[in-house]
Computed example of a mutant assay.
Amino acid sequence: MADKLRIAIAAGGTAGHINPALALAEELRDRGHEVTFYGRPSKLEGTLVPAAGFDLVPVEVTGFDRSRPWTALTSLYRVWSAKRALGKLFRAQGAPDVACGFGAYVEVPLLGWCKDAHVPYLLHEQNSVPGLANKMMAAHAERVCISVPAAREVFARADKPELVVLTGNPVRRSVIAGSRGAGREALDIPADATLLLVFGGSLGARTLNEGMAALKERLLAVDGLYVVQSTGKGGYDAAAEALALTEDQARRWRLLPYIDNMGDVLASADLVLSRAGASSIAEIAALGVPSVLVPYPFATADHQTTNARYLTDAGAAVLFTDEEVSGEAFAEKLLTLVTDAQERGAMRERARGLAQDRAAVKLADELEAVARA
């Protein structure tokens, strides 16, 4: 086995930053390396990181509000203070051999210290439209690893062609290891049924919920079709009222506020209808599930549409806008896909061809290479 490395990871704020970082950390831990996270205990990383069995070193920073420029002063002071505290910690306990930032503002003091101390670091960008923190820290990164090709042009440098590497977006093993059989058993859905899975991310999607209600009778008329619809916790009551499922209909249409065992449920699906957040795209691709994608129309710089192109350009998904969900073209395509196993099979093979399930391995390889260069 390769020599053991001390690896620092900065990720925080949202599951979209933290879960890919945890997927990388799982791969690195299996390779025998020591992994430590740096983040804000009061945020989501304060729950997810310790639950996954990794240490979290507190780093207290805040972003700034562009509409209130004076908040930049407080933000800069906290970055400076956090960077100084990290320097003191590393002098006492030993410095990392390499670091990796996942785009949240909490990475700035760690990677700033690495730059000054000549410790190599990588960045990972989950979205097609990179965030401010990664753009700030890219100048001194040894590698910028991207999830989709559309992010390349933001970071590409003629003097350093090896800088940008397409690794994909790491997906946690609990998702990749999802079992079709376990998912079907948990949902009490027959093994030979066709399963349409609908979800809009952790907060749900009102447009998808309303579109499904409008198509209820046509979907339930398809023999052997089951629907699992995750509404988001805030949308469950409205979706239940709109669907008004009878007891008999509810046997084939499972309405849930949230899905905990996403790996098994996604593995059990024959077709997915979803928003196009970076994590959703990564998980759908990793498990090779054919998909119909409806990007959130108010995402920054319309990045969900660009995210979706990763799958649609490969022929693994079809894309509709939010406005099109109420139209006949959307209805006809969704009904065609739930009845056409051959077309779904071709889409599944194209999704698998993206090798998204190996993203954590590729990112870990890049990190080891940089550390030992």
Rank of each mutant, 00 (worst) to 15 (best):
R40G: 14
R78M: 13
F54T: 04
A282C: 05
V292C: 07
S67I: 07
A182H: 04
N307L: 13
V144H: 01
M262D: 00
M347N: 09
T312W: 00
G53D: 13
A104K: 01
F320K: 05
A250M: 00
K135M: 13
D248K: 12
S291Q: 10
A316P: 12
L110F: 05
I18W: 03
G87V: 03
R358H: 13
L89S: 10
V57T: 10
L334E: 06
H17Y: 04
G204H: 05
G181P: 09
L111M: 04
E241H: 14
R344P: 07
D322C: 13
A2L: 10
E368P: 08
R152T: 05
N307F: 11
L203I: 09
K135A: 12
A158D: 13
A150Y: 14
R309H: 12
V59G: 03
E241D: 15
C114H: 01
R143A: 00
S174M: 12
S75G: 13
K333R: 14
K362V: 04
H33A: 07
E153F: 09
A133E: 06
G211K: 00
R206Q: 14
K233Y: 04
P297S: 09
H140C: 13
M347T: 10
E60T: 15
F330H: 02
D313T: 09
G201E: 07
K43H: 14
V106W: 00
M136Q: 13
T71R: 02
G46F: 06
P109L: 11
A242H: 06
H124D: 07
F320R: 08
V198I: 13
A99Y: 05
I281W: 00
R157L: 10
T71K: 00
G53E: 12
Y236A: 11
A214Y: 07
S67K: 15
V198K: 01
D116P: 12
A373L: 06
G183K: 00
W70F: 15
D260R: 09
R251I: 02
E343W: 03
H17N: 04
A314W: 00
W113Y: 06
A156I: 10
F298V: 11
A341P: 02
V98K: 00
K115E: 11
G235P: 00
R352E: 09
P20M: 06
G181R: 10
T321Y: 11
A11G: 12
R206K: 15
L293P: 01
I9L: 09
T339K: 15
L187P: 03
E60H: 11
D3M: 14
I146E: 02
L271K: 06
A238K: 03
Y121K: 07
A177Y: 07
A85M: 08
A346G: 04
L335N: 08
R218P: 05
A141S: 08
A52H: 10
T194I: 11
T207G: 09
G204Y: 02
A104G: 14
G224M: 05
K135L: 14
A82F: 02
A177M: 12
A373S: 15
A182F: 03
